[in-house]
Design a protein around this nucleic acid. Structure first.
Lengths: 334, 334
DNA sequence: CTGTTAGCGCTTTCAG
DNA sequence: CTGAAAGCGCTAACAG
């Protein structure tokens, strides 16, 4: 019926069409995932031909006309933070079940970010998830040829959808927890407030302290890391004896815990209560029973996927989706 | 000179060519990264036109003819393992400096892996880095339309290049370290030996034990996780009192350390010496001063990049590149 | 429902 | 060195 088309070359849709005895257009329609009008008999023949030839559509070629690559970009600063682990694994997995693949962009140490992004396939992705703090929504929209930029870094605007952890709820719970246990004087250990997320977080703590009449003895600045927590640990009592220490990351809390391990027996506080932030899976390790604040990763990811799966559900001006955080008690807080 | 080409549409190379007053072919050559013959004056005009128009080549279209997307796929099982973090961050960063972007594929929970891979852009990548244990070299080559599959999971063959940690060196050092300190009886805590890497690792330990005349009291099986180490911790003395415990992951060693923390004062062993594997950055935390075995991530990544940058340097039959591991003493081993 | 005809945007022969 | 022309593989528009 049809001579075997090529010796070595991968079969194309033309080969399939030829073998099935139909036009390329019909073959294309029959192979499409969308429902397109094709006579049942022909569709069958095309499918069989494709099967027989081991045909795989060339998605690069397809994207050229459809202008959609089923590719999602995830932009991060770096992937060092422990807190990222649980989240990214889940996120990646879920995006893949959507039939999309993920291109991971690390902008942490790229000098000409814009050039880098523009000169790669990432430029053409269908959607961009921005975790990195490197740019605001407008900039990101300019850096990608995509209608869908999902801001997860707190630098969104009215034009782009955003999902954010509502940190106020968990912080309020944690501070209330402390207040209910007689805490009066507190110390706050923060990261650099250059990121808007961190600035908001700090404000939340301040507001909660004020609300419960807690006295903020001092604020120490770290950089979220264990080492910086360790450093902060040495200055903890410089401004008096706190009843509780709140940290904006679990890693810093762990550093503090290690400096003052003698002040905890079996993880329970004897001198001050310790509160972290992020709810790292690491806090399940016996050595770091850090009470923390976190959100349900599943809920967070679900919200992201909702938008990814149905971009139409967002219209300009809609407020960010909020995923509540909750306080997770552990022995470091008594 | 030339009417503005399009109202809204992104400028194409045709627009650039028109503005520069040359043919598309010349524009293409002038814009190429390769040195192609173009009159200096025209090249200049083309570059300026491109600049002025803010032209960005459509890489999807380019790939269609060049058959190269400057995209590298990294296949992992999942990204839960702590040991992955440091490595992937570095790897990602380095690949990007090569001008390539990375598509991250998590095959851990994908049911029809082959279909999934074939039906995405990943199929067309220039190179595949296989960390996941999910497939051997031959299978991977079938799953991607690429000449370059780099096996990092220990399941390579003569057709594909591979980079592997040489675990023997570090294990020999660790066991020698123990033997030199009078250790006689040991326990080995392993992961599931389904992965060939783990099987090799176990053999190395056995050989080293034999060489130093150490007696293996028992082998406990975990799954690399902290929790499994914790579980193993309870059975540690079932077959007698070991002088040292060797674990094939740091996380398991941490679990054991937590169960028997009373047997360590300031991290130093009073009952048995403890050896981990992976050299996690977590072992810098005070609470887990686990002596470990690791390799220089930079060297490992460098070898990978060497192959990526110059695929020609590999020819079939060449043995895997070996990156030596070294013993990293910490107080848990005394 | 079907086949023909045009492209998507770029690179690459191949004569000039 | 240059430009015209021919694709890369696929989908979409449009008459039949």
């Amino acid at each position: 019926m049809s001579q075997d088309p090529a010796p070595d070359r991968k079969p194309t849709i033309s080969d399939v069409a030829a073998l099935a005895g139909v036009s390329r257009a019909v073959a294309s329609r029959a192979l499409s995932s969308e429902p397109r009008p094709v006579a049942a008999g022909k569709r069958q023949r095309v499918l069989e031909a494709a099967q027989q030839l081991g045909f795989t559509p060339n998605l690069l070629a397809r994207s050229l006309t459809t202008r959609s690559v089923n590719l999602v970009a995830i932009i991060v600063n770096h992937i060092h933070d422990l807190s990222d682990l649980d989240l990214f694994d889940l996120l990646l997995s879920e995006i893949q079940t959507l039939g999309k693949q993920v291109i991971l962009l690390r902008v942490g140490s790229v000098d000409r970010v814009e050039d880098f992004l523009r000169s790669g396939i990432a430029w053409h992705v269908d959607a961009v998830l921005v975790f990195s703090d490197f740019a605001d929504a407008a900039t990101v929209r300019r850096m990608f040829d995509t209608g869908m930029t999902l801001m997860l870094n707190g630098r969104g605007d009215a034009q782009s959808p955003a999902v954010l952890a509502d940190e106020a709820s968990g912080i309020a719970e944690a501070v209330a927890h402390a207040a209910a246990r007689g805490v009066r004087d507190v110390v706050l250990v923060t990261g650099r407030a250059t990121s808007s997320v961190e600035a908001v977080r700090i404000d939340c703590y301040r507001a909660a302290f004020a609300q419960h009449g807690l006295r903020l003895l001092q604020t120490l600045q770290g950089d979220y890391s264990y080492d910086s927590g360790h450093a902060a640990g040495s200055s903890l009592f410089d401004a008096g004896e706190p009843d509780a220490v709140f940290c904006t990351s679990d890693a810093m809390a762990m550093g503090i815990l290690d400096v003052h391990r003698a002040s905890f027996t079996d993880g329970r506080p004897t001198r001050f209560r310790l509160y972290g932030f992020d709810d790292l899976s690491l806090t399940h390790f016996d050595a770091y029973p850090v009470a923390s604040i976190g959100y349900a990763k599943r809920d967070y990811v679900r919200e992201i996927l909702k938008i990814l799966a149905d971009p139409g559900c967002f219209s300009p001006g809609m407020p960010p989706v909020r995923v509540p955080t909750r306080f997770v008690p552990r022995s470091s807080a008594g």
